[in-house]
Simulated assay, not measured.
Amino acid sequence: MGRLKITDRTDWEVAVVYANKDRHTRRTVWDDISKYHTMGVPLLIGGDFNCIMAQAEKKGGKAFHFSPAAGDMADFMLTNDLVDPGFNGPSFTWTNNKDARSSIFSRLDRFLVSSSILDVFQGLKVKHLTRLASDHCPILCCLMEDVKKASYHWIKFEDVWAS
């Protein structure tokens, strides 16, 4: 876990995750992040969570069941006021690279952010990029502060009005 300074704003805490496939080992990661996270400081976490949270995040293989591991991650998100901001791009970030009948696709990679970040950066976007050489897609988090656009009131002038 580290700190990131966004211009003149307060520091953010940032964590990069490569979570283990084993539920108990992965829960240790959630516990460590929770232990070192300073409540009230915005938190941005990204990486391979090795956990799916909903049926829509999996295609192929065994049927999805909301597992205790998914419950652990949901508790972690709730405890740390984290939300999944959604994404643009391919629905699944991982594949087992098998033939069509045996292929499995899952959304294992994601960003989670403190809800307070979304209050300030309503333009925050997460993109799932094209998978090239890996079995995972690269993911990208773009921060854009909500900028109020100036409103312009156009008046169309008709020449007939001058006569």
Rank of each mutant, 00 (worst) to 15 (best):
G89S: 05
Q55V: 12
A150P: 10
G47H: 06
V160Y: 02
L108K: 02
G60M: 01
T93G: 08
R110Y: 01
R23S: 09
T95D: 03
K148A: 12
T79D: 11
D99K: 10
L4D: 01
V29M: 15
Y36V: 13
W30F: 05
S163C: 00
C137R: 07
G47M: 04
T93C: 03
D31F: 10
D84H: 10
F105L: 13
L44T: 14
F87P: 00
K156Y: 13
D159Q: 05
K62I: 05
G123I: 11
K35H: 15
D146R: 14
G47P: 06
P90Y: 09
A69F: 03
R101G: 07
S91A: 12
L132E: 13
V113P: 09
Y152D: 03
D109Q: 02
K156P: 00
D99Q: 12
K21G: 14
D159F: 05
S34G: 14
V147T: 14
M73S: 01
D135F: 06
A15P: 00
V17K: 05
A74S: 11
A54L: 00
R26Y: 11
L43Q: 08
K127N: 14
I104W: 05
K149S: 13
K58R: 09
N96C: 01
F76Q: 02
H37I: 09
S151F: 03
I104E: 03
H37S: 14
A19W: 06
T79W: 04
Q55F: 03
Y18C: 07
N88I: 10
A69Q: 11
K98Y: 01
E145R: 13
M1W: 09
S34N: 14
D22R: 12
L132Y: 07
L112Y: 01
P90A: 11
V29N: 12
T79R: 12
K156H: 14
L124I: 15
A70W: 09
A54Y: 05
A19D: 03
T10I: 10
D159P: 07
V41K: 08
A162P: 00
S134T: 12
K125I: 14
R9T: 07
S115T: 15
M53F: 01
T25Q: 11
I6E: 03
S103P: 00
H136E: 03
M1V: 13
F76N: 03
D48R: 08
L82S: 07
N97Y: 03
L143C: 12
A69R: 13
H37R: 14
R110W: 04
N97Q: 10
T130S: 12
P42E: 12
D22H: 12
M77K: 03
I45T: 08
F92I: 01
D31K: 15
F92P: 00
H37A: 14
G47N: 04
I6L: 13
A63P: 01
I139Y: 09
